[in-house]
Simulated scan of single mutants.
Amino acid sequence: MVRVKLPPTIRQRRLGGELRRLRERADLSATNAGKLFGTTQSRISNIEAGGYAVSADRVRALARLYDCTDEPLIDALAAMTGGRTRGWWEEYREILSSGALDLAEVEHHARAVRVASVIHVPGLLQTTDHARAVVGDVVPPLAPYQVEHRVSHRIKRQAILYGDHPTPFVAVIHEAALRMGFGGPKVARAQLKNLIERSEEPHIQVRIIPFGAGTFPSAGHGIDQFSGPLAQLDTIQLDSDHGSVFLDAQSQLDKYRTVLDRMESCALPPGESRDLIHRVEKSL
Results as ranks from 00 to 15, higher is better:
211 F>H: 15
174 H>R: 07
195 L>A: 10
196 I>P: 00
150 R>S: 04
215 T>Y: 14
222 G>I: 06
157 R>T: 02
158 Q>N: 00
245 V>M: 15
170 V>D: 02
161 L>V: 02
181 G>M: 04
217 P>N: 08
253 L>V: 07
242 H>W: 14
196 I>C: 00
201 E>G: 00
150 R>Y: 02
237 Q>D: 12
257 R>V: 02
208 I>L: 11
162 Y>I: 01
248 D>N: 10
248 D>W: 10
159 A>Q: 04
234 D>C: 08
190 A>R: 12
221 H>G: 06
235 T>S: 13
233 L>T: 14
172 V>K: 09
168 P>V: 05
159 A>G: 00
176 A>S: 15
193 K>D: 11
204 I>G: 01
201 E>V: 08
148 E>A: 07
184 G>T: 02
215 T>H: 14
187 V>Q: 04
171 A>N: 03
147 V>F: 01
153 H>A: 14
169 F>I: 00
242 H>N: 14
187 V>I: 06
254 D>C: 06
171 A>M: 02
192 L>E: 11
199 S>N: 06
207 R>G: 11
239 D>W: 11
245 V>N: 13
221 H>W: 11
240 S>L: 13
217 P>K: 05
203 H>C: 01
175 E>Y: 09
176 A>V: 15
146 Q>P: 08
198 R>F: 09
242 H>S: 13
199 S>I: 02
256 Y>Q: 02
248 D>T: 13
189 R>G: 13
155 I>G: 12
